[in-house]
Design a protein around this nucleic acid. Structure first.
Lengths: 302, 302
DNA sequence: ATTATGTTTTTTATTATTAAAAATCAACAA
DNA sequence: TTGTTGATTTTTAATAATAAAAAACATAAT
């Protein structure tokens, strides 16, 4: 399979687009270092793209100047569709699909080679993805042996929520000690309004809750950003995303309950009721854990 | 460079060793599946090793049975010294050395290729190591650009200790609620004794403190094992190891102080003085942070 | 002096290839 | 059955090779 010089083609297209939008025949093209800065690719790539357009007759050289000779037509553009997504993403997509669909179940072993074949990539790309992914603690590998999907068991969930509990409580406590004039309080008020407005139309738009959920927990963390806590949340969101992809059955009920819990917490926060907010948050986390366990075990035992 | 069939050679040596120790001429060798289990390598490897020994005349085949024909001499053994350590380890060693020696300073960019050349590995091995290492949050990389050593600044230390504080306090609280008859209490008492005995000879053996430190913080965590917390401690220990490698100047003083702090904490724990232990632990963590900052900034600004 | 251009070198991303090791399979014996 | 050996197939680990892209360099122009 030939190498897909993706970036080059993208650059050509972007350049064509720019010309079509902003320039007309006989205009002088900017210097390549300027274009480089605009497109955020290296000058070599820009240069190769320009050469390509010269080859197509869109641009011609007069000494050092490059002049537009004709308006580019659709023929000039590369078809990026057929390139497909970048390899890394392809592996990821395929692997996650395999997990979600149950092709790879907790406890299963799987080979890099097979994944590579299935996702139409080479083994190195697969391996690199798996190494990256392994930081989630969901897969692991012994030196001369295959990868193994770790069992997603009660213990895993317990440990996950133990840490989550610590972090969320900590975040809450940091938030509550913010100055009154801190802009985060305003953001929180807006968030409460958005929650209430979603509540009024929850029966149709329950899927929008997910965005609110992210905003809420993101805002909590924003009171004191911490890269390690942040990293951990990547795991959390993956685990949730992964499990709920299976079981959409009671998504609506889940969301309605969580929405109310959010409103409860936020209201108490705005009233500066630290103790009340803590209790409500605790309750919210417990609900989330129960719900995850239910879904997870429904899945693994079926 | 030819591939180093490390495992095969190791296996041959192990097998020879076993024969030399336990068997004599005309004995019948065990079946290969049995040997496989003992040496924890695959049967193919065992098989190849046996074939090799047959080639050397140490073993000969009579039908399916394999019989020792002579006692193996030193000639038969492979020289494992010249093989060197496995690639992965080689990269790691070289990279860490580069950091510690200041070849790669915070903020620096560095290339995979150069690392590969210096550590005498190929780029893929280097890249895989770097991906693995990146979970420590100390290096990162943009897609088509080089790796970059992140700046090790006050903020990083703050965030590190923020999380560490959360975790240690949590661990302490878990520990304090252990049943009286839990074996961890006994271990803790032993640990206190070991601390005291080190204290009496601290002037000579101050370097032994590091082991005690690991044991102490390990024991705290042992009260409630959690893979996410555990993972985080890998980062902690790396950071400490990394920085103190630079600055051995006041290692002794540091260790003496920390030793006393440990004794303080453990004593209070054994007295079931939760509040006192908490305060002491807090104090201990603050000392550790101050000391790290001092070392770190002494280094980066020099 | 600064900036832009043309040229060259280095690095990254990707594929291909292969020895080593593991896993599987088939025939056979206890 | 169960377990063993011998032969075969897959997979992993590692190397090498190369197109694409970035970075560095040198030269000319403002």
């Amino acid at each position: 399979m030939s190498r897909q010089n993706n970036l080059f083609k993208q650059t050509v297209n972007q350049l064509l687009h720019y010309i079509a939008q902003n320039m007309s025949v006989d205009d002088v093209l900017h210097g390549d270092s300027k274009i480089t800065r605009q497109l955020e690719v290296s000058r070599s790539t820009v240069r190769k793209a320009i050469d390509h357009l010269i080859g197509l007759g869109v641009i011609s050289k007069h000494g050092a100047q490059r002049i537009i000779t004709r308006v580019p037509d659709d023929e000039c553009y590369f078809d990026l569709q057929e390139l497909g997504p970048p390899k890394e993403e392809q592996v990821e997509r395929h692997f996650l699909a395999a997990i979600v669909s149950g092709d790879i179940k907790p406890g299963d072993r799987f080979s890099e080679l097979e994944l590579a074949r299935q996702s139409n990539c080479n083994t190195v790309a697969v391996r690199e993805f798996l190494i990256r992914f392994s930081r989630f603690g969901l897969i692991e590998k012994e030196p001369r042996s295959q990868w193994q999907m770790k069992t997603f068991d009660q213990q895993f969930v317990d440990q996950l929520f133990e840490v989550r509990h610590l972090f969320e409580m900590h975040s809450l406590s940091c938030f509550m000690t913010l100055e009154d004039e801190d802009p985060n309080w305003l953001t929180l008020e807006t968030l409460l309004d958005d929650h209430k407005s979603l509540k009024s139309k929850i029966n149709e738009d329950f899927q929008q809750f997910s965005a609110l959920d992210q905003r809420f927990h993101g805002l909590l963390k924003a009171a004191r950003p911490n890269q390690f806590i942040h990293q951990f949340y990547d795991i959390i969101s993956f685990v949730f995303h992964y499990h709920y992809q299976w079981d959409k059955s009671d998504e609506k009920e889940r969301n309605i309950i969580a929405l109310d819990e959010h409103i409860d917490i936020i209201s108490k926060m705005l009233l500066k009721d630290y103790r009340g907010a803590t209790l409500s948050l605790e309750h919210h986390l417990n609900t989330a854990k129960r719900s995850l366990l239910k879904t997870a075990f429904y899945k693994t035992t079926s």
